[in-house]
Design a protein around this nucleic acid. Structure first.
Lengths: 335, 335
DNA sequence: TTATAAAATCTAAACGTTTACATTTCGGGA
DNA sequence: TCCCGAAATGTAAACGTTTAGATTTTATAA
């Protein structure tokens, strides 16, 4: 960014005023064809490129939306980002993406940076729904939509998955097959999916007249290492569970790895259901039964809500809930 | 972005001039402690947030680097992005990410947008190394580093994988096991990895005294569907290959899926090596032999080069080449 | 106390646009 | 030909910063 040609250079080259140049750049009409031609030539000749920074400053819009996710290496997010990006490009909006690594501190910094750059809106899967930095977004009146993990603040839209329903169905499937001792690998309880998926587990257990057993509840962090630790923990129990329900994709992967390491046979010795579909699910034997959700749709809806919010100054707080579906494959055996 | 407090509001509140406020915001020193306190209080009271757009305009730096990748849903990229992002955050630089979907047209648009926004530098895996839009980057003197796919323009750095070596090793491993008819699933020949990996295949075949057979060469597009089409094509041949080499992760996944659909037994009936490690590789039976590379390292080196380029005004064109390694597992049988 | 240098602070211009408003040019009817 | 309204174009202010350079305040020494 050194001494690039400016609108003034173009104006001089074309022998007109900068106002006229601005008008043709922004296609506002009211410029004689002959003049427009002169200007277009001048633009070519000078190699002029509009300076979006200066423009943003004047019009107080950056045409940018910020996306905040907890972990870019979790394949769930690239899928929804991809959906958001495609829709955004259609509408000539651009995206800034940052990943918090599940840290509320980093999240705060990212929010601060987004605020400084004046993003027009934010789509966020928060690392911590109680993060006080989230309120900054409100204070600055930045249109915000939360996805996957609920944010309970006025004027924030939420597009969520019915986690309770999803994990309830998964558990019901397990329990209908006669299992009584079912281990759960939970996510962080301060996130919506972590908390709600546990809720679905409890609901199903209760409905089937089963007691909760602390030893069968493992609190993980949504990363694969805790899936593996959980399985090890369950394996060492004197009374091992006959089935395991894992609350997200990464922990499922860790868990399956550990199952193999321990030679604890998937299916025949221990049934398994995971939340979220994963690539390996259909590659392993037996194939993995999972709770599946529409990630692309999630991203699209989130974008539409945000777009509407930005351009209509809507201030209410909409909530849309998508229902996941149980993809029954082969990893749950009758007992 | 409506009527946020500006530096002027702070100045008024603190009873000083905007210059002094600016000095404390930017920690330039030379301000009495008492004044500084007054200003800090005023900032708190007004809820002032620095306007990065205005600042960028004045200092002609955006502290932003643009990242352009072909496909965010290919897990290779999130890994390198993650590395870049972490390093960038350390240095107080921010990233804009855009995905081209392997389209040169989209890539052009993205480059144009990045130019308008005045990114300080670009890290790119180009969809087409002959894309004329790449030269725009040079014309505008934007420091650029290419990763994974080479860009042959003066002053752009390249950090690459030794694809020829990687695929040569893979092929040598296959051929040493006695295979003579080896199918290859190629990537697009106008990308470095697509072209070079094919080169490694040819080199190995030649060295082992084998003729190339057009029927055993399938030209894919790096997406999983072409992996599957390739396998179908090989399967329908009267003389099927006894081994297959797939040139990237996604095509490998498609290929393995198709192998199963056709009941063409991996390992015993057809040996297989893929370029790039993938999650499923260790989950399937037999486990998959792959060419592996250090993605995190790739991202870090790219960032370091870019950072150096931005702040030292270096104009030469460095090239660093990382050597991949063959991860021998069980999918290649002796014939 | 005064003179002086150093430190602190202020003033105002500049960054590259957009846009309200002013001015000029143009075309057509009298 | 002249006049008038419409169309085209121009002028200048504003957006929120940073930063030279000017000015004021402070501290120090004589």
């Amino acid at each position: 960014m050194n001494n690039k040609p400016t609108i003034e250079d173009v104006a001089k080259e074309a022998g007109v005023s900068i106002a006229t140049v601005s008008r043709v750049i922004n296609k506002q009409g009211g410029v004689k064809e002959k003049t427009e031609d002169k200007i277009i030539n001048a633009i070519k000749k000078t190699g002029y490129i509009q300076n979006a920074v200066a423009r943003s400053m004047k019009v107080k819009k950056t045409n940018t939306i910020g996306i905040i996710i907890p972990d870019i290496e979790n394949p769930f997010f690239p899928a929804v980002i991809s959906a958001i990006e495609n829709k955004a490009r259609e509408k000539n909006l651009y995206t800034i993406l940052s990943s918090t690594n599940e840290s509320a501190l980093t999240e705060g910094k990212i929010i601060g940076n987004f605020l400084e750059r004046g993003v027009d809106g934010v789509i966020i899967t928060t690392a911590d729904k109680n993060n006080p930095n989230l309120e900054l977004l409100l204070k600055q009146k930045i249109p915000t939509v939360a996805i996957d993990r609920e944010i309970n603040l006025p004027s924030v839209d939420n597009v969520l998955i019915d986690n309770v329903q999803g994990s309830y169905e998964a558990m019901a499937h397990i329990l209908k097959n006669g299992h009584q001792k079912v281990g759960i690998i939970c996510g962080p309880q301060n996130t919506t999916p972590g908390y709600e998926r546990f809720l679905g587990y409890q609901k199903a257990m209760k409905e089937f007249g089963l007691e909760l057993d602390e030893k069968l509840i493992y609190y993980g962090d949504f990363k694969d290492s805790s899936g593996s630790k959980a399985v090890k923990h369950f394996f060492e129990l004197t009374e091992r569970p006959t089935a395991i329900f894992s609350c997200n994709n990464l922990m499922t992967i860790g868990a399956i790895k550990e199952l193999r390491a321990l030679n604890w046979s998937l299916g025949s010795e221990v049934s398994f259901v995971g939340f979220d579909d994963i690539e390996i699910a259909t590659f392993i034997q037996p194939s993995l039964t999972v709770v599946k959700r529409q990630m692309y749709e999630l991203g699209e809806i989130a974008f539409d809500l945000l777009h509407e919010k930005i351009y209509s100054n809507r201030l209410d707080s909409k909530k849309v809930m998508l229902t996941p579906s149980l993809e029954i494959r082969q990893s749950v055996n009758k007992i």
